[in-house]
Protein backbone atom coordinates (compact mmCIF):
# COMPACT_ATOMS: atom_id res chain seq x y z
CA UNK A 1 0.00 0.00 0.00
CA UNK A 2 1.06 3.57 -0.54
CA UNK A 3 -0.23 7.11 -0.12
CA UNK A 4 -2.37 8.76 -2.77
CA UNK A 5 -2.98 12.50 -2.97
CA UNK A 6 -6.63 13.39 -3.44
CA UNK A 7 -8.53 16.60 -4.05
CA UNK A 8 -12.13 15.67 -3.39
CA UNK A 9 -13.78 18.99 -4.18
CA UNK A 10 -13.30 20.62 -7.57
CA UNK A 11 -15.81 22.58 -9.67
CA UNK A 12 -15.76 22.97 -13.43
CA UNK A 13 -16.92 25.81 -15.63
CA UNK A 14 -20.42 24.28 -15.37
CA UNK A 15 -20.87 25.65 -11.85
CA UNK A 16 -22.18 29.22 -12.17
CA UNK A 17 -19.78 30.49 -9.50
CA UNK A 18 -16.72 28.84 -11.09
CA UNK A 19 -14.27 30.77 -13.18
CA UNK A 20 -14.68 30.47 -16.95
CA UNK A 21 -11.14 29.12 -17.16
CA UNK A 22 -12.21 25.91 -15.38
CA UNK A 23 -12.20 24.00 -18.67
CA UNK A 24 -11.92 20.21 -18.44
CA UNK A 25 -8.50 19.91 -20.11
CA UNK A 26 -7.03 22.74 -18.01
CA UNK A 27 -8.32 21.17 -14.78
CA UNK A 28 -6.60 17.89 -15.60
CA UNK A 29 -3.37 19.66 -16.57
CA UNK A 30 -3.30 21.49 -13.25
CA UNK A 31 -4.12 18.30 -11.33
CA UNK A 32 -1.17 16.58 -13.03
CA UNK A 33 1.07 19.53 -12.12
CA UNK A 34 -0.11 19.28 -8.50
CA UNK A 35 0.69 15.54 -8.48
CA UNK A 36 -2.90 14.69 -7.64
CA UNK A 37 -3.72 10.99 -7.95
CA UNK A 38 -7.45 11.17 -7.25
CA UNK A 39 -9.68 14.05 -8.29
CA UNK A 40 -13.39 14.33 -7.54
CA UNK A 41 -15.45 16.49 -9.87
CA UNK A 42 -18.16 18.16 -7.83
CA UNK A 43 -20.25 20.72 -9.66
CA UNK A 44 -23.28 22.20 -7.94
CA UNK A 45 -26.25 19.84 -8.38
CA UNK A 46 -24.85 18.46 -11.62
CA UNK A 47 -22.85 15.49 -12.83
CA UNK A 48 -22.99 16.57 -16.47
CA UNK A 49 -19.23 17.04 -16.81
CA UNK A 50 -18.29 13.78 -15.09
CA UNK A 51 -18.16 11.61 -18.20
CA UNK A 52 -15.74 13.91 -20.02
CA UNK A 53 -13.63 14.50 -16.90
CA UNK A 54 -13.30 10.75 -16.25
CA UNK A 55 -12.18 10.20 -19.84
CA UNK A 56 -9.62 13.00 -19.69
CA UNK A 57 -8.40 11.79 -16.32
CA UNK A 58 -7.88 8.31 -17.65
CA UNK A 59 -5.79 9.63 -20.55
CA UNK A 60 -3.64 11.60 -18.12
CA UNK A 61 -3.31 8.81 -15.55
CA UNK A 62 -5.43 10.50 -12.91
CA UNK A 63 -8.32 8.78 -11.20
CA UNK A 64 -11.36 11.03 -11.58
CA UNK A 65 -14.29 10.29 -9.29
CA UNK A 66 -17.63 11.22 -10.82
CA UNK A 67 -19.30 13.33 -8.19
CA UNK A 68 -21.49 16.27 -7.33
CA UNK A 69 -21.98 18.90 -4.65
CA UNK A 70 -25.67 18.94 -3.89
CA UNK A 71 -27.63 21.59 -2.02
CA UNK A 72 -30.10 19.81 0.24
CA UNK A 73 -33.49 21.16 1.26
CA UNK A 74 -31.82 22.62 4.38
CA UNK A 75 -29.37 24.46 2.06
CA UNK A 76 -26.54 22.27 3.32
CA UNK A 77 -23.85 21.51 0.72
CA UNK A 78 -22.86 17.85 0.50
CA UNK A 79 -20.41 16.00 -1.71
CA UNK A 80 -21.31 12.67 -3.26
CA UNK A 81 -18.93 10.41 -5.21
CA UNK A 82 -19.88 7.40 -7.29
CA UNK A 83 -18.04 4.40 -8.68
CA UNK A 84 -19.11 4.92 -12.28
CA UNK A 85 -20.34 7.68 -14.55
CA UNK A 86 -23.48 5.60 -15.12
CA UNK A 87 -24.31 5.65 -11.41
CA UNK A 88 -23.62 9.38 -11.26
CA UNK A 89 -26.01 9.85 -14.17
CA UNK A 90 -28.74 7.94 -12.35
CA UNK A 91 -28.19 10.21 -9.37
CA UNK A 92 -28.53 13.16 -11.75
CA UNK A 93 -32.00 11.93 -12.67
CA UNK A 94 -32.89 11.99 -8.96
CA UNK A 95 -31.54 15.53 -8.71
CA UNK A 96 -33.65 16.59 -11.70
CA UNK A 97 -36.76 15.19 -10.00
CA UNK A 98 -36.08 17.32 -6.94
CA UNK A 99 -34.91 20.53 -8.59
CA UNK A 100 -36.76 23.79 -7.98
CA UNK A 101 -38.27 25.89 -10.71
CA UNK A 102 -35.71 28.68 -10.54
CA UNK A 103 -34.17 29.75 -13.85
CA UNK A 104 -30.52 30.82 -13.92
CA UNK A 105 -29.90 34.50 -14.56
CA UNK A 106 -26.38 34.39 -15.85
CA UNK A 107 -25.78 38.12 -15.50
CA UNK A 108 -26.23 37.62 -11.75
CA UNK A 109 -25.10 34.06 -11.01
CA UNK A 110 -22.80 33.25 -13.93
CA UNK A 111 -22.74 30.89 -16.88
CA UNK A 112 -23.62 27.18 -16.65
CA UNK A 113 -22.16 25.75 -19.84
CA UNK A 114 -21.68 22.10 -20.69
CA UNK A 115 -18.56 21.97 -22.84
CA UNK A 116 -16.57 19.43 -24.84
CA UNK A 117 -12.85 18.79 -24.49
CA UNK A 118 -12.07 21.61 -26.92
CA UNK A 119 -14.08 24.06 -24.83
CA UNK A 120 -16.92 24.31 -27.35
CA UNK A 121 -20.16 25.09 -25.52
CA UNK A 122 -22.61 22.27 -26.23
CA UNK A 123 -25.48 23.87 -24.32
CA UNK A 124 -26.21 25.81 -21.14
CA UNK A 125 -28.13 24.42 -18.18
CA UNK A 126 -31.17 26.66 -17.74
CA UNK A 127 -32.09 26.14 -14.06
CA UNK A 128 -30.04 27.70 -11.29
CA UNK A 129 -27.70 24.92 -10.18
CA UNK A 130 -26.89 26.40 -6.78
CA UNK A 131 -30.51 26.33 -5.60
CA UNK A 132 -31.78 23.95 -2.94
CA UNK A 133 -33.27 20.62 -3.97
CA UNK A 134 -36.41 19.30 -2.29
CA UNK A 135 -34.39 16.33 -0.98
CA UNK A 136 -33.58 16.56 2.70
CA UNK A 137 -30.18 15.72 4.12
CA UNK A 138 -31.14 12.29 5.48
CA UNK A 139 -32.86 11.28 2.25
CA UNK A 140 -29.90 12.37 0.14
CA UNK A 141 -27.45 10.46 2.37
CA UNK A 142 -29.67 7.37 2.21
CA UNK A 143 -29.92 7.45 -1.59
CA UNK A 144 -26.16 7.88 -2.06
CA UNK A 145 -25.52 5.03 0.38
CA UNK A 146 -27.96 2.77 -1.49
CA UNK A 147 -26.11 3.58 -4.70
CA UNK A 148 -22.84 2.45 -3.08
CA UNK A 149 -21.57 6.01 -3.21
CA UNK A 150 -19.63 8.14 -0.74
CA UNK A 151 -21.50 10.97 1.01
CA UNK A 152 -19.67 13.83 2.69
CA UNK A 153 -21.16 17.05 4.11
CA UNK A 154 -19.00 19.80 2.59
CA UNK A 155 -16.96 22.52 4.32
CA UNK A 156 -18.75 21.96 7.63
CA UNK A 157 -16.84 24.83 9.26
CA UNK A 158 -18.29 27.48 6.93
CA UNK A 159 -20.76 30.05 8.28
CA UNK A 160 -23.29 29.28 5.56
CA UNK A 161 -24.41 26.34 3.41
CA UNK A 162 -22.81 23.99 5.91
CA UNK A 163 -24.07 21.23 8.14
CA UNK A 164 -22.86 22.86 11.34
CA UNK A 165 -24.13 26.35 10.52
CA UNK A 166 -27.47 25.40 9.04
CA UNK A 167 -28.35 22.45 11.24
CA UNK A 168 -26.35 23.30 14.35
CA UNK A 169 -24.75 19.89 14.83
CA UNK A 170 -24.32 16.55 13.07
CA UNK A 171 -27.59 14.59 13.43
CA UNK A 172 -27.45 11.05 14.84
CA UNK A 173 -27.78 8.12 12.45
CA UNK A 174 -26.88 10.21 9.41
CA UNK A 175 -25.27 7.96 6.79
CA UNK A 176 -22.11 9.92 6.11
CA UNK A 177 -18.71 8.54 5.13
CA UNK A 178 -16.74 11.60 6.22
CA UNK A 179 -16.99 15.32 6.77
CA UNK A 180 -15.07 17.85 4.70
CA UNK A 181 -13.40 20.91 6.17
CA UNK A 182 -12.33 24.02 4.27
CA UNK A 183 -8.82 24.27 2.90
CA UNK A 184 -7.75 27.16 5.11
CA UNK A 185 -9.33 26.12 8.41
CA UNK A 186 -7.11 25.09 11.32
CA UNK A 187 -8.21 21.52 11.97
CA UNK A 188 -7.05 21.38 15.58
CA UNK A 189 -8.81 24.63 16.44
CA UNK A 190 -11.99 23.33 14.82
CA UNK A 191 -11.67 20.11 16.78
CA UNK A 192 -11.46 22.07 20.04
CA UNK A 193 -14.62 23.97 19.13
CA UNK A 194 -16.51 21.00 17.71
CA UNK A 195 -15.18 17.82 19.36
CA UNK A 196 -17.97 15.72 17.83
CA UNK A 197 -16.17 15.71 14.47
CA UNK A 198 -13.51 13.44 15.99
CA UNK A 199 -16.03 10.62 15.52
CA UNK A 200 -15.88 11.01 11.75
CA UNK A 201 -13.34 10.61 9.00
CA UNK A 202 -12.25 14.14 8.11
CA UNK A 203 -11.12 15.18 4.65
CA UNK A 204 -9.98 18.48 3.24
CA UNK A 205 -10.79 19.55 -0.31
CA UNK A 206 -9.79 22.63 -2.25
CA UNK A 207 -13.35 23.60 -3.32
CA UNK A 208 -11.52 25.01 -6.33
CA UNK A 209 -13.50 27.46 -8.43
CA UNK A 210 -10.45 28.58 -10.41
CA UNK A 211 -7.43 26.76 -11.82
CA UNK A 212 -4.87 28.08 -9.29
CA UNK A 213 -6.87 26.62 -6.39
CA UNK A 214 -6.86 23.00 -7.57
CA UNK A 215 -4.89 21.00 -5.02
CA UNK A 216 -4.71 23.92 -2.57
CA UNK A 217 -6.61 21.69 -0.16
CA UNK A 218 -6.03 17.96 -0.31
CA UNK A 219 -6.27 14.68 1.58
CA UNK A 220 -3.80 11.80 1.64
CA UNK A 221 -5.17 8.27 1.46
CA UNK A 222 -3.28 5.12 2.38
CA UNK A 223 -4.58 2.48 -0.02
CA UNK A 224 -3.55 -0.37 -2.30
CA UNK A 225 -4.66 1.26 -5.56
CA UNK A 226 -7.12 3.90 -6.76
CA UNK A 227 -10.14 1.58 -7.16
CA UNK A 228 -13.36 2.98 -5.77
CA UNK A 229 -13.60 0.14 -3.26
CA UNK A 230 -10.16 0.99 -1.92
CA UNK A 231 -11.20 4.62 -1.50
CA UNK A 232 -14.37 3.51 0.27
CA UNK A 233 -12.34 1.29 2.58
CA UNK A 234 -10.06 4.20 3.38
CA UNK A 235 -13.06 6.33 4.37
CA UNK A 236 -14.27 3.49 6.60
CA UNK A 237 -10.74 2.80 7.90
CA UNK A 238 -11.04 -0.87 6.96
CA UNK A 239 -8.37 -3.50 6.30
CA UNK A 240 -5.49 -1.16 7.02
CA UNK A 241 -6.72 1.41 4.50
CA UNK A 242 -7.13 4.89 5.89
CA UNK A 243 -7.51 8.57 5.37
CA UNK A 244 -4.35 10.07 6.80
CA UNK A 245 -4.84 12.48 9.68
CA UNK A 246 -4.86 16.09 8.58
CA UNK A 247 -1.69 17.92 9.49
CA UNK A 248 -3.11 21.19 10.74
Amino acid sequence: MRTFKADFHVHTVLSPCASLDMAPVKIIEKAVAEKIDILAITDHNSTLHCKLMCKLGKEAGIKVLPGVEITTKEEVHCLAFFETVETANIFQQIIEKHKPDIPNRKEIFGYQPVVDRDENILYEVDWLLISALSLNLGEAAEIVSMMNGIFVPAHIDRPSNSLLANLGFIPDNLKIDAVEISKSIDFNALLMKTPEIARYTVIRGSDAHCIEDIGSGFTMLYIENDDFDEIKMAFAAEAGRKVMALKK
Binding site: K73, E74, N136, L137, G138, N166, L167, G168, F169, P171
Partner: peptide, 9 residues
Protein backbone atom coordinates in the same frame (compact mmCIF):
# COMPACT_ATOMS: atom_id res chain seq x y z
CA UNK B 1 -36.28 24.38 8.64
CA UNK B 2 -38.16 21.10 9.03
CA UNK B 3 -35.20 18.80 9.78
CA UNK B 4 -35.34 16.86 13.05
CA UNK B 5 -32.39 18.84 14.42
CA UNK B 6 -34.87 21.66 15.17
CA UNK B 7 -36.21 19.52 18.04
CA UNK B 8 -32.84 19.21 19.73
CA UNK B 9 -32.34 22.95 19.41
Amino acid sequence: QSHKNILAV
